[in-house]
Simulated scan of single mutants.
Amino acid sequence: MLDLIPPDLTQFAALALLVVSFAGSFITAAFGIGGGIAFLADCAVLLPPAAIIPIHGVVQLGSNSVRALMFIRHLMLSALPAFVFGSLVGIAVGGSVVVSLPGWVIQSVVGLFILWVVFARPPKWLAQWPLVTGAISSFLTMFFGATGPFVAGYVKALKLDRHAHTATHAALMTVQHGLKVAMFGVLGFAFGDWALFIAGLIAAGALGTWVGKLVLGRMTDHGFHRILNVILVLIALRLIWGGISAFL
């Protein structure tokens, strides 16, 4: 196992990341959202600062790709084209500019937006303007990392059943993380140094997705959306609290 661990990581950190990769993929497959942020939080504690967003992105690319393939027959294809185009714009802009907006502002605004989606009627532009959703979320993901809840707001506005929600969200996040990883490669991040460990993290995530799919199959659509809303609210409150704490 030592050969698989990058020199910047301890054995404990590597094991913790593998466990959270499994748990995060299980949570997202079973309940629709939440695993990406859980994994990002672990990355923020255990990874070197420069590696946090790139490594999180490539592992989430693998996890979402596996989840999209497992649920592919439920995928709403019409949600993809405009979102992909918007994501290309957002990634290109995000990768080429220095963002002066403080991190606490981004956290707080995304958190408030999620609460709005859960407790108010989802804004019509979320379902009608996937290009805008793709552009904004992809721009944010270059700096914030886990924008799954933002994209989940768009998917939630489509009013899909639990399997279609999971499949469509996974496909959209695969696109977004894929573009982000490509941009970080262009910007010079050395993914090759982490390749074997990344493969292990993706494998752990695939196992978590498979177990989560079994749990999802035993749920009702009503139960799924209730749990999804609870998770979204908890994530939103955590983001807002993190933003307030950083500001203070």
Rank of each mutant, 00 (worst) to 15 (best):
A13T: 02
G192A: 14
K159P: 10
L80V: 08
A206F: 04
G36L: 05
F39M: 02
G103N: 04
V230M: 11
W125S: 11
I33H: 06
V230G: 03
G35K: 03
L187D: 14
L61K: 00
R238N: 14
F113W: 14
G86H: 08
K213G: 15
V109M: 00
P48G: 00
V98A: 14
H169M: 12
V84Y: 10
V233S: 10
A92E: 12
G243H: 03
M76P: 14
M219H: 14
G185N: 10
S87G: 04
V118Q: 01
G217A: 11
L9N: 04
G90E: 06
W210R: 09
V19W: 11
F113K: 11
G200C: 03
L172F: 02
P149V: 07
K159W: 13
L160A: 12
V109T: 07
D8V: 05
V97P: 04
A152K: 09
A51G: 12
A167N: 05
L88D: 11
T209R: 07
I55M: 12
I53W: 05
W125N: 08
T28H: 01
T10L: 01
R67K: 03
T174C: 00
F31I: 00
I235T: 11
F184V: 06
V58W: 00
N229I: 09
I227C: 03
S245A: 01
A204D: 10
S65L: 04
G134I: 02
G185M: 07
I72Q: 13
A127C: 13
R73T: 12
K180M: 04
P6F: 08
T147E: 08
K156D: 09
L47A: 12
V66P: 08
L112Y: 03
I91H: 09
I240F: 05
V118Y: 00
I235C: 07
F119P: 02
A44N: 10
G217T: 09
N64T: 03
L9P: 01
K159M: 11
L158D: 15
P6E: 06
A236P: 02
S108P: 08
P123V: 12
D193W: 04
P130L: 06
V84T: 10
I5T: 03
A68E: 02
L2Q: 11
Q128N: 13
T133C: 12
S245D: 01
L47I: 11
Y154S: 08
P6N: 07
L179S: 09
G242N: 03
V211A: 13
Q11C: 13
F26M: 10
S96E: 15
F12W: 13
I91D: 13
I231K: 02
V132R: 14
V230L: 04
Q11G: 12
